[in-house]
Nucleic acid binder design. Structure first.
Length: 429
RNA sequence: GCGAGCGUAGCCAAGUGGUUAAGGCAGCGGAUUGUGGUUCCGCCACUCGGGAGUUCGAAUCUCCUCGUUCGCCCCA
């Protein structure tokens, strides 16, 4: 019988890797919490329509990458390919705008896109995202960017670059598109085949083409900055000014175009300059003033971002060793009286706040010591029938080899000083 | 959806048509029946991702398929 394997594009996150995930989640939670953002958890699947309307029918994500199926009630449902649409749906449906003029939210969880797998790209992947709903203030744009930077900095990541652009209002874009097409049409023959198709369908996407020939042509293309109306222009300048005030470096990139239809004004991306393959964007986002209304809510300004956690993990693994959780005691026991007692001892130590691993092998003490050593515990507790008869235990410090005998109850009574000792031993390493 | 490379144990691998598939790490057992990190010994792939074919004979050659890696595309 052949074994069943995980579905293509999915993978298991195993114990030796989980430390990174927990650390990352803890850092994110803490940074977002300090900025008064609240977590929101929305369903992993939604009505297909939510994404079709929210993200845009014409986008690749909706057009060819969604996990869409009919449920038993003949409803078309889709595994969420991104987080914002669901958050906005929840915001509207639960009337969150009533509870305050402004909502600051964050989420973390799996997303699904049917794409071909590649470095830093899977079919089930995880995103951390944050959204500010109900503010048009440019400070909101800057706040979310600052939070993203803070999270990445707290994780100790370097070599990242913040790319910034403004995609203006839909009207700005319409004007710009016309200017861009006017400029590119004479070069039509020289563009790569994909870009030739885009020229009529979505000319702005030509800007971020990776084709060298196309890039050369794009270099001298008109920039959207020259086609923003004065209001959009002013917003863009305010965002730049405030980022500078906060000491956040950014790189103006007129070719930064986001793939989802709902973005307006501020658009940004955080890219890794090294360490990732072709999929080098670790995070991206921007303002999406039209989305809430598009999904049936009232006109609401909003801004947010999402980060790809697998990509962050790739960088973390290159930058730092996995955080390990320190084990206090490893309990070794052998004998008909000692073995049942070892379980009670482990349990009472856990209740007293220690982390305790119990050896269940009942093999020779020598073998159990080897495992104790490998466990990385600060100390080993030895319980044989002799100790069991007297309710004592041998406490052996695995670093120094020092060993002492004491009543079992003493471990609990002196818990505070023992913890202090373990703390000092583990910090020295 | 397209292109290229790669699949031998939990991991890293040698092997490129000739009877029993090196080695290392990890794991398990023993030397050591109550004291660890060393050492030594033993065990650990009826089978080379899966299927079909060529051949007297296939891990090795051919085809299909699945997975994986790196790209294109797209995106976080």
């Amino acid at each position: 019988m052949s074994a069943i394997e995980a579905i293509k594009g999915t993978r298991d996150i195993l114990p030796d890797e989980i430390g990174y995930w927990q650390w990352l989640e803890q850092v994110a939670r803490s940074v977002l919490g300090r900025a008064a953002y609240c977590e929101i958890r929305t369903p992993i699947f939604e009505q297909t329509d939510l994404f079709a309307r929210g993200i845009g029918e014409a986008t690749d994500v909706v057009g060819k990458e969604m996990y869409t199926f009919m449920d038993k009630g003949e409803r078309s449902v889709t595994l969420r390919p991104e987080g914002t649409a669901g958050v906005v749906r929840a915001y509207i449906e639960n009337g969150l705008h009533v509870k305050g003029s402004l909502q600051r939210l964050w989420y973390l969880g799996p997303m699904f896109r049917y794409e071909n797998v590649q470095a830093g790209r899977q079919r089930q992947f995880h995103q951390l995202g944050c959204e500010v709903l109900g503010s048009a203030d440019p400070r909101a744009d800057v706040e979310v960017i600052a939070i993203a930077i803070d999270i990445l900095t707290a994780l100790g990541l370097t070599g990242l670059r913040l790319d910034l652009n403004s995609v203006g209002t839909p009207r700005d874009r319409q004007r710009y598109r016309a200017a861009l097409v006017d400029y590119l049409t004479p070069y039509q023959e020289k563009l790569d085949p994909d870009s030739q198709v885009r020229l009529t369908r979505n000319p702005m996407r030509i800007l971020d083409s990776k084709h060298p020939e196309t890039q050369k042509i794009v270099q001298d293309a008109p920039k959207i900055w020259d086609h923003l109306d004065p209001e959009s222009q002013q917003r863009f300048e305010q965002v730049q000014q405030q980022l500078t005030d906060l000491g956040i470096d950014f790189h103006l990139n007129p070719c930064l175009v986001r793939g989802l239809d709902y973005y307006t004004h501020t658009a940004f991306e955080i890219v890794a300059e090294t360490g990732l393959g072709a999929q080098n964007a670790v995070g991206g986002g921007g303002r999406y003033d039209g989305l809430v209304a598009e999904l049936g809510g009232s006109e609401t300004s909003a801004v947010g971002w999402a980060m790809g956690l697998e990509r962050l993990l790739l960088l973390l693994q290159q930058a730092a060793a996995a955080p390990v959780t320190q084990l206090d005691f490893y309990v070794v026991s052998r004998g008909t009286h000692a073995e049942p007692q070892s379980l009670r001892l482990a349990q009472s130590l856990r209740h007293a706040g220690f982390s305790v691993e119990l050896d269940l092998s009942a093999s020779a003490f020598g073998k159990q010591f080897k495992r104790a050593d490998r466990s990385g515990a600060a100390a080993c507790l030895i319980l044989g029938d002799d100790e069991a008869a007297q309710s004592t235990v041998q406490l052996k410090w695995l670093g120094s080899g020092e060993q002492e005998s004491m009543p079992q109850s003493q471990l609990i009574e002196q818990a505070t000083s023992l913890k202090a000792k373990i703390q000092s031993l583990t910090q020295r390493e």
